[in-house]
Design a protein around this nucleic acid. Structure first.
Lengths: 195, 195
DNA sequence: CATATATATTCCACTAATGGAATATAGGGG
DNA sequence: CCCCTATATTCCATTAGTGGAATATATATG
């Protein structure tokens, strides 16, 4: 049900085609709610069916016709209603943390490699958020304040990851592990069993 | 495919029934990868079918028989392979951030209420992680180091949220909004249109 | 004694999401 | 001239995940 509202938010800024919405998802809303184009088109069809948006076909040549969706009053009302409902924080879902949790049964060097990769990824994402944030910095409209705040969550999150990964890497460094108790690599455990 | 590995991690600590795995998901692994019991049972069936675990029925009276799953060598190998694959950070998916992003088209008081609720929720979760973390603090085995690190991600995340929500609330306080440009509540906009 | 909770699994309808093929053409870069 | 990218939508098979009913009994709480 949430994608529906993410799309309505996008349409509330102005009428758009499925293609336009998909593009906006790729470059901004998608930071907080990712969706593929196939899902967006389908959901927009449902939006039309339930009267939250109306669709108008715009003739084009060379390309398929644009189908432009405009939010209706019912759509705006649905958006308001939705924002009044209590929202629970989403659950963390990260396979890397599962790997860490089960670090004993997993390849330590694989984990280290993934930490390095994550540092890069989170630095990149952090940089993206910073750029988007800078574009809004001078504005003091409510709309832009909301976008700023949302981007700040992203910046904090990515930054925390970079910091945590760096520290985790130290604590999982080979020198740190060496003196540790109960460290029995999987391969050796297997051998023991076989003896 | 990730649930499969989360279950294998659980089984790598010892043979378990679907019920046991579901319980562990509720109280620990589920912090990083949530799953409902129906999904866990289904996935464990597939684990058996693909030879990553073997199933043995244990007779019981009064309750349905336990079906205990034991990880196989193929299962352990699959886990190692998985941990060597590069893992991308998960995408943020938070409807509240979508609301913020579209704050103009949304109920401001709804957003404020949700900020208050989120502060509570994130404080609660933070406290949970702290408790779990304290239980591991004295240990210096690799297994517990991994769990500590994973919990520290959780602690940081929840703490950042509490901090950010508090600051966001100030910036969205009625006094702060009053002097702002471009603030046209939806209801008034509608009226303007009608005139 | 009634009620709730814990134990333990199966099954199913449903919704959400992925991923990619298919279709059609304009315009820019090499 | 060829290839790539952008434009724009439809469709579909498949996987992932939700949510709850059904079944059966022991034990603890009030």
């Amino acid at each position: 049900m949430a994608l529906r509202y993410a799309i309505l938010v996008s349409l509330s800024e102005g009428a758009k085609s499925g293609y336009d919405v998909a593009k906006q998802f790729d470059e901004s809303i998608g930071f907080f709610w990712r969706a593929r184009h196939s899902q967006i088109y389908r959901e927009m069809g449902k939006l039309k069916d339930s009267g939250l948006a109306i669709a108008e076909e715009v003739q084009q040549s060379g390309k398929p016709n644009r189908i432009v969706f405009t939010i209706t009053d019912a759509g705006r009302e649905a958006l308001l209603q939705w924002s009044r409902e209590p929202s629970e924080p989403p659950e963390m879902k990260d396979h890397f943390l599962v790997q860490l949790y089960g670090i004993e049964s997993v390849d330590l060097d694989g984990v280290r490699q993934n930490l390095l990769r994550r540092i890069e990824r989170h630095q990149d994402r952090h940089a993206e958020y910073v750029i988007k944030h800078e574009l809004l910095e001078d504005s003091n409209s409510l709309a832009d304040l909301g976008k700023q705040l949302a981007l700040e969550v992203g910046m904090r999150w990515e930054w925390e990851w970079v910091d945590w990964c760096t520290k985790a890497l130290e604590r999982l460094a080979p020198e740190a592990i060496e003196g540790m108790t109960n460290v029995v690599p999987f391969k050796q455990r297997e051998k023991k069993h076989a003896e």
